[in-house]
Write a protein that binds this DNA or RNA. Structure first.
Length: 424
RNA sequence: GGGGAGAUGCCCGAGAGGUUAAAGGGGACGGACUGUAAAUCCGUUGGCUACGCCUACAUAGGUUCAAAUCCUAUUCUCCCCA
């Protein structure tokens, strides 16, 4: 077997491992490993991708991924990395979120490849049957308060103004129990997580050792940040989600293609399956000619392809060309809608358009221009476009002949401010 | 309760009866440049039926041929003394 741990290390994916013998274990046989997700949103976000792809790497190396969606723990709230008590979600929301995340994970991991097929479990299924008394007797007894209080996540919250509730404080026990349960039922011996999960993971390892006298392992991946130390996956306009309804492939592509020069190679190592030699060659070329931004383009293409497939990538590339000035023609209403999904739009009566409307009047109706004067100014400054074609005459008339699709045309101000005008 | 200062365009801030749609800066927007970056440079930044017209300097009145600028009242803000 390949030395997958070494490979992960080379890709900068190992922040810490609980025990060095993990490397050997991973090369001598199939290991079942698990990662948990809290169902706090109906879509996973690109920040989760690092761990998912790491799972996929382990799976490709012959190991078996077990994914826990935290239907039970999600009802409690993990204090790790949070500086405030979480709002508890109701069961219906959690169920819907789990369904959404499950669908996404099924596309990223192989659930049908023989003995190391991924499986997905909901920890609510085993946590729900505990009574409080049983849980305290059977599980709680194994935890020492000193250790629990010493966890970084707990300590920080205790020292903060908001404090911590008993509920969140208990979270680590639940997660530790998950590990024990999975060890017993599924033979899971490794837990993978973000670096903020270290405390929860070690709690699980300790529990398995105590009750099963077995060696379990933890592997945490680093928190991915950009050049400014900002968390990967948070753009100006918000979080980048994997759900194309929430974040279009175009937006994801744009987020990635704008990666800064210092971070891009690291991202390529962590988020793509490109061989390291290829990335090294790319790094060299990028250093010689940063302006070409070859690394960024490859990163964006690879990741969008992983998440949204070839068709998603094509859509993203097409939207990119259009957003960056390609004339808009021969496009269907549906395509246009997809490309400009997150662009404001206005409606105009079809009759009015058929009768012809002065450009400035039309532009002033859009969200882009505050008044006719504003529209006039932009036209005079060469900053107004219809369907990406410059408007050079303030007296021109816009009519149904200007529709780029059956029912819409696109107004643009400057380089990339758009507004879709729909004829209704 | 007494005394003082002030309220200007998206923000800060000049202006103290007439070339004031209001200096200057910031921001924003457009353009050039560029790597869809940063920096830099240029332009624009109340509206309109646009070489002109209308609306604007807390609000409402008033004095003037003429008011952001003077007067009165109102509202609000800040400071000092009790």
């Amino acid at each position: 077997m390949t030395d997958i741990l070494q490979e992960l290390q080379n890709r900068g994916l190992v922040h810490d491992v609980s025990d060095q013998s993990l490397g050997e274990k991973l090369t001598t046989g199939m290991v079942s490993f698990y990662t948990g997700y809290d169902p706090t949103a109906k879509s996973l976000q690109i920040g989760n991708l690092c761990a998912i792809i790491t799972m996929r790497r382990l799976q490709l190396a012959g190991h078996r991924p077990v994914i826990i969606v935290g239907g039970g723990t999600g009802m409690i709230g993990d204090p790790s990395g949070k500086n405030a008590e979480r709002n508890l979600l109701d069961e219906n929301t959690i169920a819907a979120n789990i369904a959404g995340q499950r669908a996404q994970l099924e596309k990223l991991l192989d659930f049908d490849c023989g003995k190391n097929s991924a499986i997905l479990l909901n920890n609510y299924d085993w946590l729900k049957q505990f009574s409080f008394i049983d849980f305290l007797r059977d599980v709680g007894k194994n935890f020492r308060l000193g250790e629990m209080l010493a966890k970084e996540s707990v300590k920080r919250r205790l020292n903060s103004d908001v404090g911590i509730s008993f509920t969140e404080f208990s979270y680590q026990i639940l997660q530790a129990y998950d590990f024990l349960h999975l060890y017993r039922k599924e033979g899971v011996t490794l837990q993978l997580g973000g670096s903020d999960q270290w405390g929860n993971i070690t709690a699980g390892i300790d529990l398995v050792r105590k009750l099963e006298s077995a060696q379990a392992y933890g592997l945490v991946i680093p928190l991915v940040t950009d050049g400014q130390g900002k968390k990967f996956g948070k753009s100006e306009s918000g979080t980048i989600f994997l759900d194309p309804e929430m974040t279009s492939p175009y937006q994801m592509y744009q987020y990635l293609v704008n990666s800064d020069d210092q971070s891009v190679i690291g991202y390529l190592k962590k988020f793509t399956f490109l061989p390291l030699e290829e990335i090294a060659a790319l790094e060299k070329r990028t250093a010689e000619n940063p302006g070409a931004r070859e690394a960024q383009k490859i990163l964006a293409a690879e990741v969008v392809k992983i998440v949204h497939g070839e068709t998603g990538l094509e859509a993203a590339l097409r939207a990119t060309r259009i957003f960056f000035g390609e004339a808009i023609e021969n496009v269907s209403d549906a395509d246009l809608g997809a490309i400009f999904a997150d662009v404001p739009s206005i409606d105009i009566a079809k009759d009015q358009l058929a009768a012809g409307i002065n450009v400035m009047d039309l532009l002033a109706l859009t969200t882009l221009f505050s008044s006719k004067s504003d529209a006039r100014r932009s036209i005079q400054q060469n900053g107004a476009y219809i369907n990406n074609v410059k408007v050079d005459d303030i007296d021109r008339t816009v009519s149904t002949a200007d529709l780029a699709t059956d029912n819409a045309l696109v107004v643009r101000k400057g380089k990339k401010n758009y507004c879709v005008v729909k004829a209704v």
